[in-house]
């Protein structure tokens, strides 16, 4: 009895880990790529490349577990980079800029959540709308061109790779992402708010019956998630040193893929923070490794698409096997 439960937990955790091992294993088989992929410096690069998607995935996990979706993330990140760069340009201090960009994300999340909860409309449609609105607004604010962040130096430490050929020291952004992941996993698993998110995603009618304030909880979920998307935008800006209103296109799809590879169900009620973080890592390793082979860009895209389908298909199969055994 206890054995089978442990087994089930292991299997649940194993999915994304297995994916990561398989992807790394494939690169290890190729002698041309192996030395450049398997080096401390490259692993550091992978982690830095993971951070932006991973932090977005933290927010997206909440939304997807609640049974929702957010398509506006890419636009919101681009909007965040522009706002950040403009604020720096206007002479705000880096700390204030950082805070304002995150708050800006939270506010936009609240607007999304408010419309979804208040008007009882489908998240897919609302966020499809805000996706366009935010992208347009970002271009408008930026005057249709890249905004150079005049002074990012004191924010640079977040994503800067000191000593690029060695694994350590890792930039602060990586540690920040890890700390936030820990925080969010506790929030999702151990608090009443987290349980309510699961309850809504699992069965909204039951949640209402059980006294969950469904619309309020949704509003909070999108707001918290929005703060994470804002942070992703901030990190994107410090990494590139500029605000690009045309950047981060379809970033939301990478983030959704990471969450789903991590074991979440788009029907809601299922998902985990650590799964999503691993999912983000799988995506980053794939892009990084494929980028170092000599295959064309088009092939990379095809392979990544196949991997997403494969990962989710395997997960479905594993779940049904588990159910049959239980």
């Amino acid at each position: 009895m206890n054995g089978s439960r442990l087994w089930q937990r292991l299997l649940n955790a194993a999915g994304p880990i297995l994916g990561l091992v398989v992807v790394l294993g494939l690169f290890a088989l190729n002698p041309d790529v192996r030395p450049s992929v398997f080096s401390g410096g490259n692993f550091k690069l992978i982690l830095v490349q993971t951070v932006i998607v991973a932090i977005g995935a933290l927010g997206m996990t909440l939304i997807i577990v609640s049974g929702g979706i957010d398509l506006s993330v890419g636009s919101l990140v681009a909007f965040g980079t522009v706002v950040g760069a403009k604020l720096l340009e206007a002479g705000y201090s880096p700390a204030v800029t950082g805070l304002l960009v995150i708050l800006c994300g939270a506010a936009i999340g609240a607007v999304n959540g408010g419309m979804i909860a208040g008007l009882r409309l489908l998240p897919f449609i609302i966020t499809l709308g805000t996706m366009g609105i935010l992208r347009g607004t970002a271009k408008w604010i930026a005057g249709n061109q890249v905004v150079h962040a005049s002074e990012t130096s004191s924010l640079m430490f977040l994503m800067e790779r000191k000593n690029p050929s060695e694994f350590l020291p890792l930039p602060a952004g990586v540690w920040l992402a890890l700390a936030l992941a820990l925080l969010m996993s506790v929030l999702l698993q151990r608090t009443v708010f987290g349980r309510h998110i699961f309850a809504i995603g699992s069965n909204e009618a039951t949640a209402r019956l059980c006294g969950v304030r469904v619309q309020w909880t949704k509003l909070c979920t999108y707001t918290v998630a929005g703060a994470f998307f804002g942070l992703s935008g901030l990190l994107q800006m410090t990494r590139l040193g500029e605000g690009d209103p045309t950047g981060a296109v379809s970033l939301e799809l990478d983030i959704i893929a990471a969450v789903v590879i991590g074991g979440a169900s788009l029907n809601g009620g299922v998902g985990s923070i650590w799964g999503s973080v691993l999912g983000a890592l799988v995506m980053a390793v794939l892009r990084n490794g494929l980028g170092q082979t000599d295959m064309g860009n088009y092939l990379q895209e095809i392979i990544i698409g196949c991997v997403i389908i494969l990962a989710v298909g395997l997960d479905k199969w594993r779940q049904s096997r588990l159910r049959a055994a239980g």
Binding site: Q189, T191, V192, R195, F198, A199, S202, A205, T206, L209
Partner: peptide
Amino acid sequence: EGLMLNRSLADNLTATRYGPVATCGFI
């Protein structure tokens, strides 16, 4: 409506009252 079918027995049983199974808001 009555149950969250893909959640555990424990989650379904305690869904309206976490007080007895939580400390300082942590379940």
